[in-house]
Write a protein that binds this DNA or RNA. Structure first.
Lengths: 106, 106
DNA sequence: CATTTAATTAACTTAATGGTTAAATACATA
DNA sequence: TATGTATTTAACCATTAAGTTAATTAAATG
């Protein structure tokens, strides 16, 4: 019964989970792939993945025994939209962001 | 010993704390001011405020017995900067954001 | 059909969170 | 100096979170 934004922010507040997301920016990865860099057991990673999935930050598919993870592209938009209300506070950054956006549009 | 970004996201993952931040966008407020809308005791609010302060999302001053809270304008930048790495994922939103930024620059 | 590989579930431990009530601190004022 | 006002601290409780090991499920392959 927890609201979706809280769920996402809570999921993102763990560095292991953020590292998993970062790795997923390079594309799909299996649980074993994702677990590899961490000094942590597989069930621990499995739990982290479930947290990310429940928060709507990743989706999963099926390939034989593997359940590859994929970034949910839309997932972080809700966080971004919330942040947008506060972005006006640091306008001095807007020029930089504006040019970044211009540069990326092409 | 927890990293600053995790600390901020964790602080933001509670709806009461986000509501406190939202109220502070209208300017300084005392603990009693901030507590008023919530069905929660004052010590609970006091704790939430400490979490926000520790995360660097608010600062506090002193005015007689009151300890007014003030939004830490720079606080959310770290979150925004992190999100920036992922913003490329939803480019279709960039045009809208771009025009928003243009509209706010004036 | 037995075995290996991939991942999850169960059961448990420890620590952190979010709340409470009651007591304490800090300052202002009658 | 006693009292009221604003806020915090202390002590406690219940729930959730993050990790473990051991057992289980699911699918592929010898």
């Amino acid at each position: 019964m927890i609201d979706p934004l809280s769920l996402k922010l809570q999921a993102l507040s763990d560095p292991t989970r953020r590292a998993i997301l970062a790795k997923l920016t390079f594309g799909q990865a299996t649980v074993n792939d994702l677990a590899e860099p961490f000094a942590m057991t597989l069930p621990a990673i499995s739990k982290h993945i479930k947290v990310l999935e429940t928060a709507g930050l990743i989706t999963r598919s099926r390939n034989a025994q593997q359940r590859p993870c994929l970034l949910a592209t839309e997932g972080l938009r809700e966080v971004d939209d919330w942040l947008n209300n506060y972005r006006v506070m640091w306008e001095q950054r807007l020029d930089r962001l504006g040019t970044y956006i211009e540069s990326i549009k092409e």
